[in-house]
Amino acid sequence: MSDLKTRVLEDVKAAMRAGEKDRLSVLRMLSSELKNREVIDAIEVTDAVVTATVEKMVKQRRDSESQFRAGNRPDLADKEAAEIVMLMGYLPQQLTEAEVLALIDQAMAETGAASGKDIGKVMGWIKPKVAGKTDMGKLSGLIKTKLG
């Protein structure tokens, strides 16, 4: 069992003991999603799988939060934002924008990327290095901006 999955399961127990209903709800959703990946996809849950699952859940909540804010529902948007904060605790330390831009420059230099048609080359080079450490949507936007 992965270290992250073990941590999630231990945190579920701790949240139950402490009576932290909101935190427990988020952790149970995460635990359920991991169990689904294990059973339905028939894969072993590694730290990489946990990270990818958490990233997916964070992305879903960011989308929901922006829709709730657009729909003038700050109460629901704030709930989604709080869940994002809880989930982010299971991701590696996030890269700063300067670090991401430096990696993009390095990727462009090493792949010879010079125009918009080379976005795939840059993404292919950089994606394994930043998995779980940055928002992939923002990364894609930064790459597009750099390549013109």
Rank of each mutant, 00 (worst) to 15 (best):
V26T: 15
S115A: 15
K121M: 09
T53N: 00
L101T: 09
D135Q: 03
M88D: 03
K117G: 10
K121C: 05
T51G: 02
G19V: 07
K21M: 14
V54I: 09
L91E: 01
I84L: 03
M86D: 09
R62M: 08
Q60Y: 11
Q94E: 05
V100Y: 00
Q94F: 03
Q94A: 12
L101H: 11
Q67D: 14
T53P: 01
M123W: 08
L91T: 00
N36G: 11
S66G: 03
D47F: 03
A42N: 14
G89D: 10
V130C: 01
A131I: 03
A102T: 12
G120H: 12
I40H: 12
E80P: 06
P74M: 11
Q93Y: 09
M29T: 10
S64W: 11
I104K: 01
I104R: 00
E38H: 12
G132A: 04
Q106S: 14
V85D: 02
D78Y: 09
M86T: 12
P92S: 03
A48C: 03
D41G: 07
K127T: 11
K133H: 00
I40D: 15
Q106W: 10
F68V: 06
K129N: 05
G132S: 01
R23P: 05
Q67P: 05
M136C: 02
A52E: 11
L24D: 06
K129G: 01
A131L: 10
G116S: 12
S66L: 10
A81V: 07
G71M: 13
K59T: 07
L30C: 05
A113C: 06
T46P: 03
G19F: 09
F68S: 11
K59N: 08
S64D: 14
E110G: 06
K21P: 06
T111S: 09
R37P: 07
K21A: 15
V100M: 05
S64Y: 11
T46H: 05
G116P: 02
I40E: 15
K59E: 12
V130L: 01
T53K: 00
S115H: 14
V39Y: 15
S31F: 08
V50A: 02
M123I: 14
M86W: 09
I104Q: 00
R28T: 14
